[in-house]
Nucleic acid binder design. Structure first.
Length: 399
DNA sequence: TCTGGGGTCCTAGGACCC
DNA sequence: TCTGGGGTCCTAGGACCC
């Protein structure tokens, strides 16, 4: 029997969060972005999109397109809290939920919807209740697989509900441009268009009737897309907590740099962030990568395999310095990044439970405060306060 | 005023072993 | 005494997504 998989996507999530903080923003062109030397648009309201503003666009350019737009800096802490509310709301329906990102997830609604006669109305009610209780709007895709559910939620925004079963696929998916296919981006789309595949229907046709040459040109798509299009893709949700395969940080430098002296403090900061996050996740990496972006925006990456898996800041920093000096000293770069990968889970750490991201934020603050307290106590040679959590209640407000 | 930062997955080529 | 070939691991680079 086919499963009933939902993909739920929050509409203009960051913008919506800002509107909830400040209702006067509703109906106005709003841009959520990074300020600074290399600010880009993270997301924007539909009103701003009308002026040609889009995600990824440099902020200054976006403001040129839409001078009246209201520019707001990202407030991730608040967005994370609203995101937690969203997932908590959905967990009241089912625990079969795979979180895909801060504002989207997959749910297995097979047992919930199988016996429901008016599924559309049921989901409409879910949307309205979500809106009433959290203020958030969402689009829902309903299909037998994750791929189709994801495609479905994208079809009608905002507040859409789209079913993709049987004939729906041909009717609703085939006319879409090939770039709308999840996984085909701005590099692959033009390549496919060049060989006559302009729509998803063209792709389905090419897979079914294409000759050897087409087959070769499609590569991996030939073997995977057929199943995806015809509802035979993956319908198994990953219910486990996120288990990172790599952890890294990167930053665009204040100015272009070409010497170790210029980048050393940024590098040190990045290594410290990578180390503390790896420790929080109880991960020790066996590989360390140093990535730089040159002034032509080309990325270069050097990876080394360490002698022993580590998450120690001093080792990460030493190795990162070595990688920099041996490979990039003299090259003019605008961005530098450090990533720890190939995690080895140590036996004694296997059982450790993971905190959710919101707790990490608290942990990080406490971490800094604990250090201050430690320094203070050592100055006073007599402990006054033991740890940060003693200063105030936990996140539930309990003392 | 010229383009973020966090990830995952895939591919291709080289090294190395048998 | 003229370059096989399968398997695996490592690294670099790229595509894609949010």
């Amino acid at each position: 029997m086919n499963k009933i998989i939902l993909h739920i996507d929050l509409n203009q999530f960051f913008v919506r969060c800002e509107q909830l903080k400040n209702p006067k923003l509703e109906g106005k062109p709003v841009i959520i972005g990074h300020s600074g030397r290399s600010g880009i648009v993270s997301t924007c309201s539909y009103e701003a999109r009308k002026y040609g503003v889009s995600s990824g666009m440099p902020t200054f350019k976006a403001l040129r397109c839409c001078p009246n737009a209201i520019l707001i800096d990202c407030d991730y802490e608040y967005y994370k809290r609203k995101s937690d509310e969203f997932f908590a709301f959905l967990r009241r329906y089912t625990e079969k939920i795979e979180i895909a990102s801060i504002d989207e997830c997959y749910l297995d609604f097979t047992s919930i919807l199988s016996d429901v006669s008016d599924q559309y109305n049921y989901l409409l009610n879910l949307q309205l209740t979500l809106r009433k209780q959290t203020g958030l709007n969402c689009s829902i895709g309903v299909a037998p697989t994750k791929f189709l559910a994801k495609m479905g939620s994208d079809l009608k925004k905002p507040n859409g509900i789209t079913f993709l079963f049987g004939d729906d696929i041909q009717k609703k998916l085939y006319p879409l441009p090939i770039g709308a296919f999840f996984g085909i981006g701005k590099k692959s789309a033009p390549r496919l268009e060049q060989i006559g595949i302009k729509t998803i229907g063209d792709l389905a046709n090419a897979i079914e009737h294409g000759d050897e040459n087409t087959k070769r040109q499609l590569g991996r798509l030939y073997w995977t897309a057929d199943d995806w299009i015809h509802g035979r893709g993956n319908d198994e949700l990953d219910l486990t907590d996120w288990d990172p395969k790599s952890l890294g940080h990167s930053t665009t430098l204040d100015k272009d740099c070409s010497t170790f002296e210029e980048i050393s403090s940024a590098l040190s900061e990045l290594c410290s962030m990578v180390s503390s996050r790896a420790k929080r996740y109880k991960k020790r990496g066996l590989t360390l990568s140093l990535v730089v972006k040159d002034t032509g925006f080309k990325l270069h990456n050097k990876t080394i395999t360490l002698k022993d898996p580590t998450n120690e800041e001093s080792i990460i920093y030493d190795e990162a310095c070595r990688l920099y000096k041996e490979n990039y000293e003299g090259l003019v770069i605008r961005l530098i990044g450090v990533t720890l990968g190939k995690f080895i889970v140590l036996k004694e750490e296997k059982e450790a439970t993971q905190m959710n991201l919101w707790n990490y934020e608290q942990f990080e603050k406490n971490d800094k405060t604990n250090k201050l307290i430690k320094d203070l106590n050592s100055l006073l040679s007599k402990p006054l306060i033991k740890k940060a959590s003693d200063l105030k209640g936990d996140k539930n407000g309990n003392k």
